[in-house]
Design a protein around this nucleic acid. Sequence first.
DNA 1: CTGAAAGCGCTTACAG
DNA 2: CTGAAAGCGCTTACAG
Lengths: 341, 341
Amino acid sequence: MLPKEVTIKYIAEKANVSIATVSNVINDKGRVSEKTAERVRSVIQQYQYQGNLAAKNLRTNKSYLFGVVVSVTQPERKLKDNPFYWELISGIEAEASGYEFSIVLKGIDSAEELSAFINQRNLDGVIIVGAEENSSFVKVAEESNIPAVYIDSYLEDVSLYQVRIDDKQGGAAAAKHLLQLGHRKVALLSGKLTYNSVNHFRWEGCKEELSAFDSYDESLLIETDTSAEGGYAAADDIIEKFPEITAVICFSDITALGLYKRLNEKGYEIPKDLSITGFDGVYFTNYMIPELTTIKQDVGKKGVTAVNLLFEQIKSNAWPVENRRISLPVYLVEGESTAPL
Amino acid sequence: MLPKEVTIKYIAEKANVSIATVSNVINDKGRVSEKTAERVRSVIQQYQYQGNLAAKNLRTNKSYLFGVVVSVTQPERKLKDNPFYWELISGIEAEASGYEFSIVLKGIDSAEELSAFINQRNLDGVIIVGAEENSSFVKVAEESNIPAVYIDSYLEDVSLYQVRIDDKQGGAAAAKHLLQLGHRKVALLSGKLTYNSVNHFRWEGCKEELSAFDSYDESLLIETDTSAEGGYAAADDIIEKFPEITAVICFSDITALGLYKRLNEKGYEIPKDLSITGFDGVYFTNYMIPELTTIKQDVGKKGVTAVNLLFEQIKSNAWPVENRRISLPVYLVEGESTAPL
DNA sequence: CTGAAAGCGCTTACAG
DNA sequence: CTGAAAGCGCTTACAG
């Protein structure tokens, strides 16, 4: 004869104590005699009491909820197909779960939506992926005054917590690798090249290295959608307009996937006719044929790190400014998609 | 001079009405004169009032939260790499968002965890992927007495809401296709073949069709992990132990991906040496080389449908039992990975 | 060591 | 049409 809901009041009655005492036992607070505590615990056990987080939230203003905000495709309003997101969320979810926090996944298109999301849900923190400088998302997150971590966002404000990788070095590593193999005509296949985006820094890294060999050519910089479709569509540009190209640096594995496909249709062989590098090192790169040479980052760790930075903010906002930007390492993983010229 | 939190009380003061009236305006309930309502609305607008869902939840017992439960790999406790999940969640998120519901994504390994998750969060509904008959997950969901929808679960209890595809027909379609092409020695590459799993039905479909041509051979049924690694690992079995095989039906695109890789390493050509089919039709199948012939399902729609079934339960539990199981269509998409023998 | 009481921000009968 | 009051399930001073 369990009641419909086992509440703290119910437990208190069964254990012959006040609800205050039950609360103290649950939260290990105040002084409670071991004898009483023991009794309360056994009643909790017996009735399988599970606290009501909404009530707790209302009282303490903590929701034990982190929001994860990703942008969505327009106009379909779908999450993007890039496995990068899934690996990221996998890391976030695993780390947050370990601390009894849950993850609310939200595709957002407008600042108002973000504001409502953060405030109505009383989120304890929010992780925002790929925010741009001066974006309304950043403003909203700052105004709402909750712990926030930006992933893959190059925001100048030093007070913001950010997790990223060394994109510039990654770009440089890819370029260096191809230069060493003798390539001098290298196309760069970038996603949208907005100011201070990850693409921007990957591009800078490439540019610096290529320039050192006098091999940087602005006309070989191609912007396309960061998707398999985008890589596929860009292939024709590359092979038709610039037949002199011998290598392509893709700023994302997913564009390399599309590029592979189109090149294959056109009868090109990789790496014989064209060397190709990717970026991210998502799981499928190991299964591409030929295996993709790529700039590997630990996407899951990015998520884990973001969660930890959220916890730092919850604990205190005194975390020194110098420690608020974390840059994770990247390294070249040599596959079979690059060859000496 | 906004207060730290704009509450209903604050709005009531500014609008010179009671909080009850504010509440009525917000929820379009009770009788409020248009004049008053207008005033209240403008104050809400002015102070950008955003309700507190925790308070609302406590009072109404509705959280506007749906849980999505996926199983995790052991022992790493990671979400699985299969893009199937991402596409599914994409559909769920988009549909739920349209109704102001948010999605809590949770990797779960134990029934206790699931129970705590559902009850503490006051979830309004839960979507469970791939539950097995008699699994403790199903018991927990039933006991907790909240709307639940099972995806890709063949549960016998007719009162349960389930969304799936016609797995048997899908398996049959793959087999039929290969038989038509003249194949008679066909291996089946399945994930774990537990009773009443999707794999089980895909297998049944294959078996029936193959048997009709006297071509079913139990020894050609191979179980492996549903992952690219699983497909990769199974390849050696297939080509070494059973050189007579001319085609492989993979019960998942992701295993086909791994299989492709290993076959390529071994010098096999697809479809010349071996015809291959996949299952699911996830985005990357269009980019496999050769393009994978696969049994396509609309994964996003599966998610959308599950959310709608959740809403049906919220509205009433009187939904006729016959309508509680929804089976979505599948169809063969012919790629380039299958050829006449 | 223990409990009575206030209060978090809402909604919902109910009275007027 | 409008508002005072109770109450959802907790936590937290505070008093004893």
